[in-house]
Design a protein around this nucleic acid. Structure first.
Lengths: 258, 258
DNA sequence: GAGTGGATTTCGCAT
DNA sequence: ATGCGAAGTCCACTC
């Protein structure tokens, strides 16, 4: 039984060889990295051209394409997953065309020199987890409403109203309805205005006093004033606190279980 | 004088060697690619963990970091440019920590096996140009208003009015004011409503008949009906056509110049 | 430096 | 499939 080769490297391959490697890698659903001198044309939702230069060209197993320059977080050209590849070689130039349907678009990359090709078979079953998201904050509030205010009773969450979705709503100690808008980071004016819209929309639907509460770790400068003007409340809440509450509750559940 | 080495490759380096290569690459502002088995912790605007698996780890010259799995357009973990790096090696594990200020966040990547390290010095002066943007469509309309309708005379563009910006406005053959809202791709209901707001706003300001014209390559399903209901016009216009017009005009300008 | 809007946004989820 | 909202969005531009 042959051993797995996670990485196969070709340094300065002849263009004919490079062409064959690329063809076999793209048809064999391998991850492919090319470093070389190339120029790129994109046609699709917009159009673009990239003049010659040395870049890193990556094709992943699912047919996504990334072309990276030596600077910047974002790829200069790209294609999301699902591309079909056409690789050709003619008069000293290797051309890789990646075509996607829906939306119809294509990236054509021409290489006149290939410094390096790497073909990878990556084994990756590891799980990725993101914590302290807005969803976690919502869960934390539902688990322990007192972190927003004492006596709050959540009624429901992710409720659809005309302008969008309300994160949580509940009844406060004085029997008023409380609309809760959650932001996991510093809330700006747009968050305040969104909450105002929700509150307005709910006021037109229910026969009860309605309050709006913005829950966020912080506010931008102008937002505080805007909140006051619009008669809305604010409750400072750190996402880390929420993560803690979720952790505690999970632990408690486990303890109750045993 | 030593020749430039655009690509230096190390296959299955010992971890001690790998550590030194990474240190010298990050301090020397080189582009670095590592393929290996790693796990990742992120702390910052949110928090995340990524369990062990084989991935591609990239550091660029400006200190941006990308960690890519074998699938998907987006990196699983990343850091925009400006990170500072701390590389250490202890009990068989290579740790690379990338820290950024403002916002304060860090990615810590641990490798227990490195299949490949590539250190690159990419020369890339090529210019990147993107065509047929919304701005290009606006320019094309100003250059040749007849593509919207015969006899249209543009008055001004990007005029500030209450709800936002009017892309172009002009006077039509019947002396009416025409508000033109441009979308470079399929226009949705929100574009229609925005235009309606603009038209409404202008009607309150001028003593003249005011029309609204939505210019876009396509409409979403419901938008057509909404346009009719609101008494607005639609003009289909392909961004590629606009690019063509701009090209022709530039050519003509050159010809006139000589 | 902070806020605002756009993107070849991408992605996920609900309809 | 389509539409809508969120993102560790990033990025460029304005104030």
């Amino acid at each position: 039984m042959p051993q797995r080769r996670p990485v196969i490297v070709y340094e300065n391959p002849r263009l004919e060889i490079a062409t064959e490697i690329v063809k076999s890698a793209t048809s064999g659903r391998k991850t492919l990295i090319i470093a070389g001198n190339c120029w790129v044309d994109y046609q699709g939702r917009a159009s673009s051209t990239l003049e010659p230069g040395e870049r890193i060209f990556i094709v992943k197993e699912d047919g996504s394409v990334l072309i990276h320059r030596s600077k910047g977080y974002e790829p200069v050209n790209w294609q999301p997953s699902g591309s079909v590849f056409y690789t050709t070689q003619r008069s000293g130039i290797l051309t890789i065309r990646a075509v996607r349907r829906k939306p119809r678009e294509s990236i054509t990359t021409h290489f006149d020199h290939v410094h390096l090709i790497v073909v990878l078979s990556l084994v990756d079953k590891g799980e990725f987890s993101l914590y302290a998201s807005e969803e976690d904050m919502q869960r934390a509030i539902l688990l322990r409403p007192s972190i927003v205010e004492e006596g709050l009773k959540p009624i429901t969450y992710e409720k659809k109203v005309e302008p969008g979705f309300i994160d949580v709503y509940g009844i406060d100690t004085k029997g008023r309805m409380a609309i809760i808008e959650i932001k996991r980071k510093t809330a700006g004016k747009e968050a305040v205005l969104q909450l105002a819209k929700y509150v307005d929309s709910v006021r037109n639907m229910v026969n009860r006093e309605v309050r709006g509460v913005l829950v966020a770790p912080q506010l931008v400068k102008g937002a505080q004033k805007l909140l006051v003007t619009l008669g809305l409340d604010y409750r400072q809440l750190d996402p880390r606190k929420c993560a803690e509450i979720i952790r505690e509750t999970e632990t408690k559940k486990l303890a109750d279980f045993y």
